[in-house]
Design a protein around this nucleic acid. Structure first.
Lengths: 130, 130
DNA sequence: CTCGTAGTTTGACAGGTGTCGTACTACGAT
DNA sequence: ATCGTAGTACGACACCTGTCAAACTACGAG
């Protein structure tokens, strides 16, 4: 046999074991949200090293694992690189509309933050909260 | 002077300070998700003691505070009780569709879990995850 | 005033989280 | 066989989180 060493298996939860709380928790981190947004934008599989994240390699590994174990992404080895993609069909089947509204919300917030950074006015026109 | 003691102020983030990551984190806990679901079902303001939660009073206080500080709920004192309601308009304006899809997802998952509990079959008809 | 009820505060505690650095493994290319 | 690159594992660390119990505060009723 050619494979005497570890076969490089990656544990993924089956669709029925994906839990909403864990998915929301996975998405509640800025770094992971960024990964998910890029994964959604480019519709192909992306390697971990594709991302330019503000953390070290080991932290990156950690975040990708959280995403995988919560069922948000699917990971497969291709030689020495690991390819990542969103589990769109599973997520859409379990939680219809959730992923899209989170992505839209993240996009909207990113735009809002960019605008806020461009306009250095201190006490801008802020409507009081109801 | 009627108010010599603490005026019982409750800090809420203004709409523009509500952050998606914090909202998702607030919703990623089972107890808090339950609170939010009930708050959405009954459309009126509910007191903290209305909820029958599997935790002590102090833990309940903690969860309500997380929900309030993340901008998910609005709390107001009415005498000795505290009334809670969802900040629907703020959330819908900031993150259109998000709250509804989370609520729908939570509902769907609850149904799925009830069915799973009712059907004690071990390896039931579970579609493999793609 | 006294009491009960609704909720808060504080301190404690076990366990989780995000982060890093360093050492390691797996694979492809030379 | 050797080397470089992509990613992992491990230990460490500060911090956050969910939980509780016990003591406390605020308010309304009697």
């Amino acid at each position: 046999m050619t494979t005497t060493t570890t076969p490089r298996v990656l544990e993924h939860p089956t669709r029925d074991r994906i839990r909403l709380e864990e998915v929301l928790h996975a998405l509640s981190d800025a770094v992971r949200l960024r990964i998910v947004r890029e994964l959604a934008r480019e519709e192909t599989e992306l390697s971990c090293s594709y991302f330019d994240l503000p953390v070290t390699k080991s932290t990156t590994t950690h975040h990708f694992r959280v995403l995988r174990e919560s069922g948000v992404i699917q990971q497969t080895y291709q030689g020495t690189t690991k390819l990542n993609c969103l589990r769109r069909s599973d997520l859409d089947a379990l939680f219809p509309g959730l992923l899209d509204s989170v992505l839209a919300a993240a996009g909207a917030q990113a735009v809002r933050e960019e605008e806020g950074a461009r306009r250095p006015g201190p006490g801008g026109p802020e409507g009081e909260p109801a």
